[in-house]
Design a binder for these strands. Structure first.
Lengths: 219, 219
DNA sequence: AAATTATTTTAGATTTGCCTAAATTATTTT
DNA sequence: AAAATAATTTAGGCAAATCTAAAATAATTT
């Protein structure tokens, strides 16, 4: 069984690797977890010993099969708890992250399966991120970054890249949530900001490229 | 803020002191928490330093006001989570303790208030123990140990002293739960076992004094 | 290719919570 | 009241996870 800290390292590596694709480096992990690089090196040796990561000095790390499975389990728990907090306890989507960071470490397989059932087997969390199933399988939605599509295109908000509280609060304010329909009326060449229509209403708003770069919409 | 371990010590002291009445001794705490007496002494110094306990060498400890408040907060969380597990996630009353032991340490005032609301402000947990309110106030039910009442007496099961899985499973089997009406038909002088009627049915069963000593009924 | 810069690792400490073994204090027995 | 026993504390250490400072390695620049 993994310690609280080990789980956090494994999760950080999973995220930094782009869900397991790329190698991850010491400095990046230390930044993600707000620790020092030396601490990361110590932990990488420990995780390598436990065969959770493939580690070669100075070469970065990747997760092993077993490490990947552990990461997906923690992510599953995190996202299910987020659904619980938003759907059942009426939290806003910008308030749930810190609490889910704690809840994700609760150890009980039965608990998480019962929670999943109670929530009626959600496929996505409140930010649109997919919830891995018991076997770590993820349902991938076909989607593109809003910033990558052309004028005239329309789609539904599927997922957010950035989930900071300030970003989520801004989206609340302008009326964007998961499932909101967005139509791109015009892209300003100068700054790549977009003039969009929300849910086929008459209201048009302008969003900066910093915003459109962080919203995925369905294809 | 208290560490996970400190919270467990404070909670153990609260329970061992009979909810704050008596002095508590090193050996008892070490037994309760499955640590060694020397470890307890270390922690008592630390908790005294933080003004959570009154500690005098060799004399035992008591909780301070602040220690008592911390204990009640952890107990509140533990019991609310137990209600959640039983009422919402369909756990049996003998399965919830270990999970609640973990959940009770999650830090978020908002979470616990929202959970309380979601559960519709329960006053008692699945074992009949009272749930302290936000201010640490407890609603005391008037009750007596089943073993302390006379033949002919009847009352409703209010609370259990022992909450081990084996005891709870036995109660399940013989049909006793919180709220069950029990009438004492006869007490066997030899072993103090009791012949009882459950919920005014025609079925009579015999329970040992080990059982009757662990069931509280309403006065 | 040598020098500079950036990244990573090693070495040695620190803190928290725990341990064992020995010493101390309190309690009980004779 | 002295001896024996029980409870508690002290002293010294260990493991996990962290840190700082110094050394080693890799990458980049000139």
């Amino acid at each position: 069984m993994l310690s609280y800290t080990e789980e956090n390292y494994i999760k950080a590596i999973f995220h930094l690797s782009g869900d397991g694709e790329k190698d991850v480096f010491t400095n990046d992990i230390s930044e993600e977890l707000a620790t020092k690089p030396a601490s990361v090196t110590d932990m990488m040796k420990k995780l390598a010993q436990k065969e959770l990561v493939n580690y070669k000095k100075y070469q970065g790390v990747t997760l092993t099969k077993s490490g990947r499975a552990s990461a997906l389990k923690v992510i599953r728990k995190h996202r299910l708890w987020e659904v619980f907090l938003v759907e059942k306890l009426k939290f806003n989507w910008d308030e749930v992250h810190e609490i889910a960071e704690q809840l994700e470490h609760i150890q009980s397989n039965l608990l998480i399966e019962r929670l999943d059932e109670f929530l009626e087997f959600p496929a996505y969390d409140p930010h649109g991120d997919p919830i891995p199933n018991e076997d770590g399988k993820i349902k991938v939605k076909k989607m593109v970054l809003l910033s990558d599509v052309k004028e005239g295109f329309a789609g539904d908000v599927a997922c957010l890249k950035e989930t900071s509280s300030s970003f989520l609060k801004y989206l609340d304010k302008i009326g964007i949530k998961i499932g909101t329909n967005i139509k791109i009326n015009h892209i300003v060449e100068f700054d790549s900001s977009m003039d969009i229509t929300i849910d086929n209403t008459k209201i048009r708003i302008n969003i900066s490229s910093d915003v459109s770069k962080n919203i995925f919409i369905t294809l």
